[in-house]
């Protein structure tokens, strides 16, 4: 009975849906506020992301003629479900997730499903801009995913385990992997920026070129679910990086685990916001170039270094 209740609590409240929903809104607000302040603007009030979500739920939900109605209704839900499932295996603060050997691979796979859904949404929603955006998002996926996966396999090889909880636990009595493999950390951050389609890699939804890219024709509830899934992906991606590279909730000193975890997550978010502000958007061919000529070889170098020097 208690098991049932605690499982339900984990799924729906902490660190389940309610917690992730709150994290998505908070991270979005902090990101927008930091970017605004760096640009000299005021930034939104704290309730803005919540207000945007509620507003979208209340809006009319139309699709153009030629859009695949069933797919367009299902895809945002698929994306949201994949992201929420991925969050189950990532420890947050003190909470220990149900872990097993290999859950890192499962999480990475689950986090790729929203990218695929995004691309399909572009193809199936019946607009020129969304088709172009969908093509670009797939090209982008192949450019950042390989370095991202290789960068995340470095800590796994170093820790001798493919379980996120184990990798995190190892760092409580060893230096953080970000310090030991700085190149890997840099590549993981770059890959995360590509995954979250933030500037300078916001190519599929380049506002001035193709409207909103794959999501151009979505509105109302569908768009609300899409945005929610993308923002929860931000939170989940940051939590993943904090666990794998920054040691989760450990800091070497006795301190409240949730606070430590929260501060580390905020620091990663601040880095992402800073990168957003600093650069112009790349073109898709420039990103493909960058991904395959620079990032992938660097990731290979990092993995080789770990294999030859790190372990044993």
């Amino acid at each position: 009975m208690i098991d049932w209740l605690s499982a339900l609590f984990s799924l729906l409240i902490f660190p389940g849906f309610a917690f992730l929903f709150l994290c998505a809104l908070t991270f979005q607000w902090i990101d927008r506020l930091v970017v605004a302040r760096l640009q000299g603007r005021v930034g939104p009030p704290w309730y803005q992301p919540l207000a945007d979500f509620i507003k979208l739920l209340a809006k009319e939900d139309v699709l153009p003629i030629g859009a695949h109605e069933l797919a367009c209704a299902a895809l945002p839900m698929v994306s949201l479900a994949a992201v929420l499932t991925a969050a189950l295996y990532i420890p947050v603060g003190t909470h220990s997730a149900p872990s097993f050997e290999g859950d890192l691979i499962v999480v990475l796979f689950l986090l790729s499903i929203p990218s695929l859904a995004y691309f399909l949404a572009g193809w199936l929603s019946g607009s020129v801009f969304s088709v172009i955006g969908g093509n670009r998002s797939l090209l982008q996926y192949f450019s950042y995913e390989v370095p991202f996966l290789m960068a995340l396999s470095g800590p796994a090889i170093l820790s001798g385990s493919w379980s996120i909880a184990q990798i995190t636990a190892q760092q409580s009595h060893a230096p953080w992997i970000a310090l030991v493999q700085p190149l890997g950390f840099f590549l993981a951050l770059t890959g995360l920026i590509g995954k979250l389609k933030r500037s300078p890699f916001d190519i599929p939804k380049a506002k001035s070129e193709i409207g909103a890219g794959p999501l151009t024709e979505f509105s109302g509830r569908k768009l609300a679910l899409w945005q929610l899934s993308l923002h929860i992906k931000t939170a989940v991606g940051i939590f993943l990086l904090v666990n794998v590279f920054l040691g989760g909730a450990s800091i070497g000193l006795p301190a409240p685990a949730v606070l430590v975890f929260g501060i580390k997550a905020l620091l990663v978010l601040l880095v992402l916001s800073l990168v957003d502000v600093l650069y112009a958007r790349l073109r898709i061919d420039q990103l493909v170039n960058l991904g395959w000529r620079v990032l992938a070889p660097l990731a290979l170098v990092q993995v080789l270094v770990v294999i030859l020097i790190g372990v044993g």
């Binding site: 640009q39 500037s199 112009a280 958007r281």
Partner: peptide
Amino acid sequence: LAEHIGFTTIFMYAWR
């Protein structure tokens, strides 16, 4: 121009 190439920061600074 900066806004069109995705460099929103320069857009904000130039208009400021």
